[in-house]
């Protein structure tokens, strides 16, 4: 009886496709994602300024901007990678390729790409003079903690766009869907618009919410001074009541007694939120949510690509 031939299994095929991805990185201009990440990271750092991790407002804006950069990078890394070669995948699937191996190769390759992008953005923020808090709750180094959060946000966004790329049939459809998903991520992050009721529940399904929450917690937002209240009061200095200007009187007293910093610190305590509390439990919860989402998106990508044989000729 003839010996049954055995062909390369799933794990061996992962290495074949990973090699292909790495060659594509060099030849198919995927490397351009890295200078792009540097450019966008630089622009955002320039816009955020050095108020990050000093005042609550600066920290919130900066963390939101960093989250957006990570989501943007993740999306652009892989939104076209599958759909642009869909007919090739179909052909190779017919010839014995395992879809799970193909997706696993993408997952590993994208992990490397996201890690590089995170390092670049972190480097740029440090060069730009943003001082990260000294306190770390997970690894002992706040830079590493921030890096891990940014990596997870980038990678989860990457997996989401990988899933979209696996579901849609061509690059045009992918690029049409992407802005909607991006808008959903931004609007339902909870940072731009105060959400209530059913819409608030939707925030749990966004990458931006968990990324922002983790970064703000690591940035120790709750203990930082808040300037919005003081600025608002300052605007009302001309307010008169029964021939007097009580608001002006109040601000003058604060300044005269050099109590401004105390006032700002005190107002920050009242506006802090429990979800931004600096604790290992809080940060780990955010990381876990991001990791679950990443795995879920990878599973969706695999399952939807398994149906590739049904593609019409």
């Amino acid at each position: 009886m003839a010996e049954k031939k055995r062909y390369r299994g799933r794990i061996a095929q992962v290495w074949i496709y990973l090699g292909k991805q790495l060659r594509m990185f060099v030849f198919q201009n995927d490397w351009k994602m890295l200078p792009m990440a540097a450019l966008i990271g630089g622009l955002v750092t320039f816009a955020v300024g050095t108020n990050m991790f000093i005042y609550q407002e600066g920290t919130m804006n900066g963390c939101f901007a960093l989250t957006c950069v990570c989501v943007w990078n993740g999306f652009f890394n892989s939104i076209q990678v599958i759909c642009r070669e869909r007919p090739i995948i179909k052909r190779e699937h017919r010839a014995g390729m395992h879809i799970s191996s193909y997706i696993a190769a993408h997952m590993i390759y994208q992990m490397l790409l996201c890690a590089l992008q995170t390092v670049i953005i972190l480097g740029i923020t440090m060069v730009a003079g943003i001082k990260f808090p000294a306190e770390s709750v997970i690894t002992g180094s706040s830079i590493v903690d921030f890096g891990l959060t940014m990596f997870l946000v980038t990678y989860t966004a990457d997996m989401l766009s990988l899933a979209i790329s696996a579901i849609v049939k061509n690059t045009t459809a992918a690029m049409t869907v992407m802005p909607f998903v991006l808008m959903f991520q931004l609007i339902f992050s909870g940072a731009l618009i105060v959400l209530q009721g059913p819409s608030e529940r939707l925030t749990d399904f966004t990458i931006t919410k968990w990324g922002l929450q983790s970064l703000c917690a690591q940035g120790n937002l709750n203990t930082q001074p808040q300037v919005t209240l003081w600025n608002t009061i300052w605007e009302f200095r001309a307010f008169e009541w029964q021939g007097q200007k009580p608001v002006k009187l109040f601000t003058d007293q604060i300044l005269k007694n050099k109590l401004l910093n105390d006032f700002l610190a005190e107002s920050g305590k009242y506006t802090g939120k429990p979800e931004f509390a600096l604790s290992a439990e809080n940060v780990l919860h955010c990381w876990m949510m991001l990791a679950i989402m990443a795995v879920l998106f990878a599973v969706i990508a695999t399952l939807s690509l398994e149906l590739i044989d049904r593609d019409k000729r």
Binding site: R6, R8, P87, I88, K90, R91, A95
Partner: peptide
């Protein structure tokens, strides 16, 4: 198939070598 379903930015040698790894017995 009718269309040339190939990764254009890979070398000829690597394309054939990967096909060999995928299609030939272990």
């Amino acid at each position: 198939p009718q269309q040339d379903l190939l990764r254009l930015n890979d070398s000829v040698m690597n394309t054939l070598y990967d096909a060999a790894k995928l299609r030939l017995p272990k």
